[in-house]
Write a protein that binds this DNA or RNA. Structure first.
Lengths: 108, 108
DNA sequence: TTATTATGCAACCATTTGATTGCATATTGC
DNA sequence: GCAATATGCAATCAAATGGTTGCATAATAA
């Protein structure tokens, strides 16, 4: 889970995921276009995405085809974010309670 | 949105969010316990969480009370993650298609 | 075979990040 | 007022990050 959060923290990597979402099976050279950076820079980002299992690769001869793997994102959504969603009312309740008592502090 | 992703990338900050989810209104000194780091280190993390609007604060005298704000997490879920969820079948389709044609490359 | 294409690996560098320490400010309680 | 408490600000430093360049390897194409 940790590598997924780290991988998603970079806007270039999120853009790569967007690109792979729209069109799967792109090669490294395909993904370079539109990011204004060197091949190695994009390659490094792809490595981080692969290590987080966000991108799956298929070698076809000398070409490395990249595909978005949506599973880790789904897990973030269900295992981590969902927790805060269900508790949303409770958290807001905590917050509002404090606002109400804000004007008379230390009234014990 | 960018500051939210950055803020969520650090495990200490996610632990702080967990703690505030369980118990809202904690002070800085409360949040220090259990992380094994200095007050300033926790304070820096809290600043990043505040800048990402993930944590709301209420001053009460000399005490700064911290509350989880679940809204940015909800926005990540609906505006960013949801996109990949709806396209999950399509992404998997892309991936499987490539696996099927993997054994006979360059057959055009 | 030879040139071209697609990619990986390694070294290097600048910037950012995460943490610590020391000092300053403001509020509370005696 | 004065000590203790709660926090912020600034300087410093090590480590991680993001990028570039140069060279190496492997597969395709002429």
């Amino acid at each position: 889970m940790e590598p997924v959060f780290k991988a998603l923290a970079d806007p270039v990597r999120r853009a790569i995921l967007d690109s792979l979402f729209c069109k799967g099976g792109q090669r490294l050279n395909d993904l370079i276009e539109g990011h204004g950076m060197s091949r190695q820079a994009v390659s490094n980002h792809l490595r981080i995405l692969e290590e987080a299992n966000l991108v799956a690769v298929v070698w076809k001869g000398r070409e490395k085809l990249h595909y978005l793997n949506p599973v880790p994102i789904h897990e973030i959504a269900t295992r981590w974010i969902a927790k805060f969603q269900t508790g949303q009312l409770e958290a807001l309740s905590n917050f509002k309670q404090s606002l109400e008592s804000q004007e008379k502090p230390n009234h014990e």
